[in-house]
Write a protein that binds this DNA or RNA. Structure first.
Lengths: 143, 143
DNA sequence: ATAATAAAAGATAAATTTGTCTTTTATTAG
DNA sequence: CTAATAAAAGACAAATTTATCTTTTATTAT
């Protein structure tokens, strides 16, 4: 459904949202350990998200990743869009670039329903929601 | 959503269903051209499907690929399962192997709905349906 | 039987994704 | 101002997916 990179990204963003709900910051090592991902690999992904403003980062001592008020308003759709592009939102399920309403592939309408359901789900899930959840759920971002 | 290999597979199976509705057979070159895929690449995929009995094949002159009555009862879910395994049907949307009802990831229930919609759509689409459709739709399996 | 045909199988290569290691830059505390 | 810290960036490597080319096997028609 998503690339592995995107799976890591979503897990990391949820982790950061949960860990920094109190205004603190979380280091890349802790993120990597928390979501069971390669440290430098997730680092690059977070760099992308940070550059786009989806998350915040701060260098140096006391530095780390966090979400500001603005970022908490972003949704998982924004994360997915940065990492995987819009394939999942608009792409043809059969990989046909020219598939469209007027030139639909044989499964166009069925895929449309699925895509819309995915879009709706991602767009309605705001990063801030995860800041409000219990610590306990963290464990389920690993493995 | 699906691997590129799986996209080719679905397109090829639909193509074969449409082209051989009259009991004829269709060669690999025609399939490859018809769905815009690399000839030898789709050939291997069709070999897999043929070995599993999802489609039929016949060597030699007048040979080619086709669907028998039994195969027309298979669904796209069967095709996807052979090519991509059960990840799309059962896998966690965040890539967590141990994600389950009792240890759900933060998006477990939302992903479940999506997966179920995909499963339902694929399981309800029988290969025979494509044998009954108009020639005209063929063009929309390309590009 | 033989030649022609077409799928099956095998080997190899290119491209992309994923993962690792090192160096650089920015920031903070002392 | 300096040293320590942590993210950013760059270079490289492994693994996987996708694509290409060649040889083999089975089948048909002559």
């Amino acid at each position: 459904m998503f690339s592995k990179t995107c799976e890591y990204a979503i897990r990391a963003v949820i982790f950061i949202a949960q860990k920094t709900a109190d205004g603190s910051r979380v280091g890349i090592k802790e993120v990597a350990a928390g979501i069971d991902s390669p440290e430098h690999f997730i680092a690059k992904i977070l760099q992308d998200l940070s550059r786009k403003g989806i998350i915040q980062s701060q260098k140096g001592p006391t530095g780390g990743f966090y979400l500001d008020a603005q970022s908490r308003k972003y949704t998982l759709a924004d994360v997915v869009h940065v990492v995987d592009g819009d394939q999942i939102f608009n792409g043809c399920g059969l990989g046909l670039k020219q598939c469209s309403e007027t030139k639909p592939c044989p499964l166009h309408n069925e895929f449309k329903k699925i895509r819309d359901a995915i879009s709706k789900m991602l767009r309605s899930t705001h990063l801030g929601e995860f800041s409000e959840q219990l610590e306990q759920k963290l464990v389920f971002l690993k493995r």
